[in-house]
């Protein structure tokens, strides 16, 4: 049984290891506690609200290595962007078609910019 996920407001002052952050929550407030966190669930109430992409990247950039879950209105078109921003777990409201996800993730061989994943931008491949 995994630890219960607490809300961002409940997290402060608790010793929870799993937290849920909403689009308006400041992910940077979690940075002092990254050592004990094993799961960060970033919610996407509407797919159009892209604040969670920044939240995820900020935490990965700060060295967070636990699970980063995208939850909510998560659609296949967003999965490649989310993966690049450091998400490695998905809890979509409507289940995704595995084959579609695989196709979306494999669509482009190269990327133009570094992000929170391991992919190397095409300029770096060219120039080292």
């Amino acid at each position: 049984m995994a630890d219960p996920i607490v809300s961002f407001a409940e997290f402060e002052g608790s010793n929870a290891t799993a937290v849920r952050i909403e689009p308006g929550d400041d992910a940077r407030a979690l940075i002092p506690h990254l050592d004990r966190l094993t799961l960060v669930e970033v919610t996407f109430p509407k797919f159009r609200d892209g604040r969670g992409y920044s939240s995820a990247r900020i935490l990965r950039e700060a060295g967070y290595e636990g699970t980063m879950r995208a939850a909510g209105d998560v659609l296949v078109d967003q999965v490649p962007f989310m993966t690049r921003c450091g998400f490695d777990d998905f809890a979509p409201d409507v289940p995704l078609n595995e084959a579609d996800v695989k196709a979306a993730l494999g669509r482009y061989a190269d990327v133009y910019q570094p992000a929170a994943d391991a992919r190397v931008p095409v300029w770096k491949l060219r120039h080292g």
Binding site: R48, D49, Q113
Partner: peptide
Amino acid sequence: RQWSTLHPEFSYL
């Protein structure tokens, strides 16, 4: 243009 194309963080501004 290259930097902004399929930018993972800034596609749902």
